[in-house]
Amino acid sequence: MKTVEDLRKLREEVQQMTKLRDGGAEVKIVVGMGTCGIAAGARETLNAFVQEIAVKSLSGVVVTQAGCVGLCDREPIVEVNAKDGRTIYARVTPEKARRIISEHVQGGRVIEDWVTRN
């Protein structure tokens, strides 16, 4: 490392390494990971969220998991907790996950078609 710019460049690159531990997230995405959810592909969904957040370098967004919420027929279930409140999406595929990030989390528009109510 020869210059201050080198340090700052490296910091940009490695920032993701500890970001998960910062806390203070504004948006929390919770993926249902009960047996039913996992069988329906919840892990792929979860990982799609993680990837997308990293690719877009979004800050203040965390992805966590929860157990079965009792809507097993509609898994993978994803809950988005943001300023606009709590939204529950059903049958979230990795493809849908990426759209939830761009339209809901970044754009602030709930995707009504995928919302489920219990």
């Binding site: 201050v4 490296l10 910091r11 490695v14 920032q15 500890t18």
Partner: peptide, 23 residues
């Protein structure tokens, strides 16, 4: 919070920025 054996984790949390500014 960090892994003390990995300098990148320290740098990710503003490590060596103070030295950079001072110098």
């Amino acid at each position: 919070i960090i892994n003390p054996d990995v300098i990148e984790e320290y740098i990710a949390r503003d490590g060596y920025e103070a030295l950079a500014r001072v110098l």
